[in-house]
């Protein structure tokens, strides 16, 4: 299965959730697969930060479902977050790990999962997560997303996807700073709060 078709399936299930996603090919893919989630998605370039940031959002907005779109390389960069999630037990956090067994955006050198020995879902269970699963098919992935979006516990889905980027998709032009403003203004508007307010004087 491809990451893009998984994204299309996940996108169809999302409405008022907030999404944090990783760097690389998944940026443009999500930009195309989920145009209705554009302002609700934080596009960043931060290996190892994606799921911790999503958890911070989940802690700050416990009434709102947060989705982390992480990667095998990103999760392996900071496995400790799985233990933190197990201990903190956020009830509103779905973590997807796109596991293509390589660092695709820099040409495809293998990640640790390429050996076939490293199992991120098993690491998640070992860290204490009750819900940590691997999806090998699109049907399984979609069903796990449905379950994860409805479960009041941290929920990890490791999607074993092909090492390809969807061809023919539009590029996202904005940088991380513009994307942050777009995201923050969306959170402000939908939550009725001020995060980045005016200075004392103009």
């Amino acid at each position: 299965m491809t990451r893009y078709e998984c994204m299309q399936a996940l996108a169809a299930r999302l409405r008022d959730e907030l999404v944090v996603l990783s760097l690389g090919g998944s940026v443009d893919e999500w930009y195309n697969a989920a145009p209705h989630m554009r302002a609700a998605s934080l596009f960043q370039q931060q290996l190892g930060c994606v799921t911790p940031q999503a958890f911070g959002l989940a802690a700050g907005l416990p009434h709102r479902r947060i989705v982390s779109l992480d990667t095998d390389g990103g999760m392996m960069f900071n496995l400790g977050i799985l233990a933190t999630l197990a201990n903190e037990r956020p009830e509103n956090l779905l973590v997807i790990v796109w596991d293509n067994a390589c660092y695709l955006s820099i040409g495809g050198p293998p990640t640790h999962t390429a050996s076939g020995l490293v199992d991120i879902a098993a690491i998640g269970r070992g860290a204490g997560l009750e819900h940590a699963y691997t999806a090998e098919s699109l049907a399984d992935f979609d069903a796990l997303c449905a379950q994860g979006l409805a479960t009041a516990a941290p929920f990890l889905v490791v999607a074993k996807v092909e090492a390809v980027v969807q061809p023919g998709i539009r590029r996202k032009h904005s940088d991380g700073r513009e994307d942050k403003y777009i995201f923050v203004r969306h959170v402000e508007a939908t939550e009725g709060i001020v995060i980045m307010g005016p200075s004392e004087h103009n």
Binding site: C49, Q53, F55, G56, A58, A59, G60, T84, V187, I195
Partner: peptide, 23 residues
């Protein structure tokens, strides 16, 4: 929130900032 390393803690704090809470 007890974290496994300070980099993880910084990233969580960043997420809290984006939620409108302060960390």
């Amino acid at each position: 929130i007890r974290v496994t390393n300070e980099g993880e803690g910084a990233a969580i704090c960043g997420g809290v900032f984006l939620s409108g809470k302060r960390a």
